[in-house]
């Protein structure tokens, strides 16, 4: 026997928690992917599916929180198990927020889908969405694998998002200046880009929490 294992019940319950966590992560990634699709081509059924997915994510998060609390009460995990479960509670609440933001983005897209938004802005937003998808995947796996190096990368990945966000903002501003009648419609795209940028922040938060879980230090503040 090489791998040392805790009790069978402990391990099974931990495995179930990890499975549930993976499910939440996959759902959030799917929602973000749907958002990108919706940007490219508004489709009411996709919009509905994003809203429903966000509600499902809410319920599944609450359920997993209950499971984690019961696990702590009955198995009394210590050391890295304790830190993992405690961080799990925080990480899944970030994942839940990703769902909320996707639902808000979907609503904003509905508001503007009949407005002829400049191609350049739409393309940049789609690019941002795809990039965010990569960051989400990375953050979810970084936490599960206790991957300190990749967790630190997420903060740098976010610079790219900020760049795209700034460039979208510039584009929107110049469109509004050049075409003032257009302004009331295009303003929604600012919210939209802002929500997307906040999804990326969630990925960064998960990375920071992973760093804290491993080092007990807040990245950039205590270290």
């Amino acid at each position: 026997m090489s791998e040392k294992t805790p009790g069978i019940s402990f391990q099974n319950r931990m495995d179930n928690i990890v499975d549930d966590y993976r499910e939440l992560g996959n759902l959030a990634i799917r929602l973000n992917g749907d958002v990108v699709k919706l940007l490219e081509n508004y489709d009411e059924s996709v919009h509905k599916s994003i809203s429903a997915g966000s509600s499902t994510l809410d319920i599944k998060t609450i359920n997993l929180e209950r499971v984690c609390i019961r696990f702590m009460a009955t198995e009394q995990p210590l050391a890295k198990d304790l830190l993992f479960i405690e961080s799990m509670l925080r990480v899944i609440s970030h994942i839940k927020r990703v769902g909320h933001l996707c639902a808000k983005i979907a609503d904003s897209i509905r508001n503007i889908h009949e407005v002829p938004i400049p191609e350049k802005i739409l393309n940049q937003m789609a690019l941002m969405g795809e990039y965010i998808g990569v960051m989400l995947k990375k953050s979810f796996s970084v936490f599960l694998n206790h991957d300190l190096d990749k967790a630190r990368e997420l903060d740098r990945d976010d610079d790219k998002i900020d760049e795209l966000y700034d460039s979208i903002l510039n584009e929107v501003t110049s469109t509004m200046i050049n075409d003032a009648e257009f302004a009331p419609y295009i303003i929604d795209t600012i919210f939209l880009a802002r929500y997307m940028e906040r999804i990326a922040d969630k990925a960064v938060s998960i990375g920071s929490r992973t760093i804290f879980m491993i080092t007990l230090k807040r990245p950039g503040i205590d270290e």
Partner: peptide
């Protein structure tokens, strides 16, 4: 010790990954 033990053996013992 119970949150972040230095030694691997301690970690294994307190988390039940032992023996």
């Amino acid at each position: 010790l119970f949150v972040s033990p230095k030694e691997k053996k301690t970690e294994e013992y307190i988390t039940g990954r032992f023996g």
